[in-house]
């Protein structure tokens, strides 16, 4: 059977149109176009941020949208929202309506229902919308920074106006720099440029020459001082210097102190024997006296040596 051209065209248009219409109907049904809508009204002191068609969201899912905005006689904004039948269960009497205005993305009304067992929200009741405002928060945070930026901009403006002012500091500095470079180009030396006077430069040169002479003399004196220091060294640290003699004396003292230790031991012995008698007391006394005398002599000798070598005087020529 051969199908006529009319039939084929009719079949094509009919079938395709039906498929397209069915697809659109399915889409519309899926989007809830044919569902019963429940109207709720919420209020807000300001209509700022609300728009018709704005989504109403519950747990991240779109459950409805703003149908209309009205201003009542008390100046309060009434926001009428439409919720399809299948989503109306999320709207309860204790539901909180929050206008959430994120910094990025579109604003939406978020429904928060803490107790899903609470009674459904009466369609005549008008709860108030809480406004959570990322944008305003951000603006509040940015405002001080903006003020500072404004100040900086003012300063920059002042600086630029100063810089551009022909009588301003920069121009003065530049003109001075110009003078300096001109001077530098015309003077014979840097010093002449600094003091701007030739005679002063000559005086300065003379002073410098004198200073050179003085330093030569000081050098000479220091050489002599070096020689004297060498001499003093040999007198203190040399073979017959003071320090070797002091060493000998100290060794002698150490030997005598050892002897004294023994004597003290003996004294202890004697004191223990005191109860026995005091007949050796005189002998002991004379021994101690001898020892003390010897020590005293040694100390005197030491004093004499140290006192003699302690403060050598140098005469600077």
């Amino acid at each position: 059977m051969t199908l006529s051209r009319e039939f084929k065209v009719g079949l094509f248009i009919g079938c395709t149109a039906i498929i397209v219409v069915l697809a659109l109907l399915y889409l519309a049904a899926g989007k809830g176009v044919f569902e019963n809508l429940h109207a709720f009204t919420v209020s807000s002191k300001s209509g700022d941020g609300f728009t018709e068609g704005m989504p109403v969201v519950f747990s991240g899912f779109n459950i409805g949208k703003v149908q209309a905005l009205e201003l009542n006689e008390k100046g309060i904004v009434l926001i009428k929202i439409k919720i399809p039948d299948r989503h109306v269960k999320w709207i309860r009497s204790d539901s909180a309506f929050i206008l959430y205005r994120p910094l990025i993305g579109s604003a939406r009304i978020v429904v928060n229902t803490t107790n899903l067992n609470s009674p459904p929200l009466d369609e005549k009741k008008i709860p108030e919308v809480i406004i959570v405002n990322d944008i305003n928060d951000a603006i509040a945070r940015i405002e001080p920074a903006l003020e500072r930026v404004t100040q900086i901009a003012d300063n920059v403006e002042r600086l630029t106006s100063n810089l551009s002012d022909p009588k301003g500091d920069l121009h003065r500095i530049l003109s001075n720099a110009g003078k300096i470079t001109t001077n530098l180009a015309s003077k014979k030396s840097l010093v002449e440029m600094v003091v701007s006077d030739e005679e002063s430069v000559k005086a300065l040169n003379d002073s410098l020459k004198k200073l050179k002479d003085i330093t030569t003399n000081v050098d000479r004196i220091l050489t002599k001082v070096d020689k004297m220091a060498d001499k003093t060294d040999s007198e203190i640290y040399g073979k017959d210097g003071a320090l070797p003699q002091v060493n000998v004396i100290l060794k002698d003292i150490v030997g005598k102190l050892q002897k004294l230790d023994k004597t003290i031991d003996n004294i202890n012995k004697i004191s223990s024997d005191t109860s026995e008698g005091t007949k050796d007391l005189h002998i002991l006394r004379s021994d101690i006296d001898d020892t003390l005398k010897t020590v005293e002599d040694a100390v005197k000798k030491l004093d004499a040596i140290i006192g003699l070598k302690k403060a050598p005087e140098f005469k600077v020529p």
Partner: peptide, 13 residues
């Protein structure tokens, strides 16, 4: 008009 609208819809489906 008809052909493009219908064929494009078919293509989308």
């Amino acid at each position: 008009i008809i052909s493009i609208v219908l064929l494009s819809s078919l293509c989308s489906i």
